[in-house]
């Protein structure tokens, strides 16, 4: 069964449409990467999938449920977690409070979920009481991903998780994404410089000008000369 099926999405801001019929599928357990130039509409697609922007046309299915018009608080309850590209932490709150808000919709005791996040990001365990605003970019990205993982989601959507990070930190984040995926969580990633991301992906999409341009297996996109020249910096 596919975890997420979006077809023919038209969406944007006010009266300016950015997406002109975009379709994306994430199968259960897959890692899928969407690449595309700056301004292609990748972040807009994510916001639309997550119910932050209304889909003017098209449909979104999460598992076997039609979620086209559902607000974020309903999607979160279904196990759909999203890490935005920017402003993806609560800077004046502590690490612990950030993570706790990730589990906001849950009614159970969160201690086991905290442990699982700290197992994945051991660097955060000793910094529970630190204000996230005082942390480095790499640490913030871990808090942002940790916050989303508190849900124990079935699908994790990451918008440019490594964009602002040094190469060694980026590699660490990609390792963690693989570890997350090994726990059975499907992952949908958006990346601008996406070689590393495509390498670990089952499949990939190329988005440009608000439309699907290519799709295929991760390695296939990586080895395609046209895509390499146009979208992966040669």
């Amino acid at each position: 069964m596919s975890r997420l099926t979006a077809s023919g999405l038209v969406s944007g801001y006010e009266d300016m449409m950015i997406l002109h019929g975009v379709s994306v599928i994430v199968e259960d357990g897959e890692i899928v990467t969407i690449i595309g130039p700056n301004g292609a509409g990748k972040s807009t697609l994510m916001k639309t999938l997550f119910g932050l922007l209304p889909a003017i046309e098209g449909s979104i299915r999460f598992g076997d449920l039609d979620t086209t018009a559902l607000p974020p608080d309903r999607l979160v309850r279904l196990g759909f977690a999203y890490v935005p590209q920017v402003a993806n932490v609560f800077p004046s709150l502590t690490v612990r409070e950030n993570l706790e808000l990730g589990g906001f919709v849950l009614r159970e005791n969160l201690s086991r979920r905290f442990d699982r996040v700290f197992d994945l990001f051991p660097a955060l365990r000793t910094r529970k009481r630190t204000r996230v605003g005082n942390m480095s970019g790499g640490e913030r990205q871990m808090v942002a991903m940790g916050r989303a993982l508190m849900l124990d989601p079935r699908l994790l959507m990451l918008d440019e998780p490594t964009a602002a990070l040094a190469p060694n930190l980026a590699a660490e984040i990609f390792e963690q994404i693989m570890a997350i995926n090994e726990r059975g969580i499907s992952v949908l990633i958006v990346e601008q410089n996406a070689k590393e991301s495509l390498r670990l992906s089952d499949r990939g999409y190329v988005l440009a000008g608000g439309c699907n341009r290519f799709d295929g297996a991760g390695m296939e996109l990586l080895e395609n000369e046209d895509i390499g020249k146009l979208y992966l910096g040669g």
């Binding site: 997550f50 932050l52 974020p72 608080d73 979160v76 309850r77 999203y82 935005p84 402003a87 993806n88 932490v89 609560f90 800077p91 808000l101 990730g102 906001f104 919709v105 916050r147």
Partner: peptide
Amino acid sequence: NPSLARVCG
């Protein structure tokens, strides 16, 4: 962070 608050449900 109002938009992230919405993202948290």
